[in-house]
Amino acid sequence: MSDLTFTLKHRPDQRVDMSPLVCQKLANMEPAEIAALTLQNGKSKSRVDELFSITGSDAQNMVIKNSFGKLDFIGRGLDGGSIKIEGDAGAYLGLGMKSGAIIVSGNVEIFAGCEMKNGYLEIAGNAGDFLGAALPGNKMGMKGGTILVRSNAGERAGDHMRRGNILIEGNAGDYCGSRMTAGTIAVMGQTGRYLGFAMRRGTLLLWNQPVLSASFNDCGAHTLSFLPILFSSFKKLNSRFAEASAVFNRVQRYAGDMSEMGRGEVLVKITQTGF
């Protein structure tokens, strides 16, 4: 069985809600039934085969070709299977996904991995604001799984994050880890202003010294034994995080945000070895 492939025929002017095209919903459907599904396209509805040419039949392995930044809600609530996106993806990519994998070759818009519960989301390009965050008004963002961004992430990455890992190979925008309840965000590049704003618990693991608010307190330099275990869990990823040269266990620890609960931590890599 070949991968179920949706190739975009033309770029619609309006945004398209792709949430009906998710592995578990298409699992027992005939090709004609899939073609007849309707997608919200701006204010109107369009049949799937109006927008996409469809080939293949393995709904557990979906591919979306010629994708671009107006295809929203791809992989919404994904519960097993994989979706490979060739091109960019719109907003709310993998919203509330429960398991499975989504791999994007391009950039993604806002709220990628928002409120995701488990699974794996890999973004080769840049991610928009509110990566792994909670929907506006909600209190709980990402609750599990791993998001890997191989380039930069926008503002508010991990806002209200509860559990899981967000790994950013590039830079993160302002308010990274804001209002975090727990979980881990690792950033290899630079971080913006207001890092960890109002974070309660959780770990921000950084390769470069950030500009920290006055409400983060320096707890000194430490060798932490959980870090090698954390890094070994990244070994299977297609990422710089998997490289042996990425591994370290010596960090400067800052506790915060003291204006909130203050049980969170910012760990910054120390290059010189410890005692």
Binding site: A182, T203, H222, T223, L224, F226, I229, S233, R263, E265
Partner: peptide, 18 residues
């Protein structure tokens, strides 16, 4: 501090030697 790594839960307990 709790850390869930690869499906296993770990606890990091601050003690006097680290």
């Amino acid at each position: 501090v709790a850390k869930l790594i690869d499906g296993k839960r770990y606890w990091r307990i601050p003690v006097m030697d680290g």
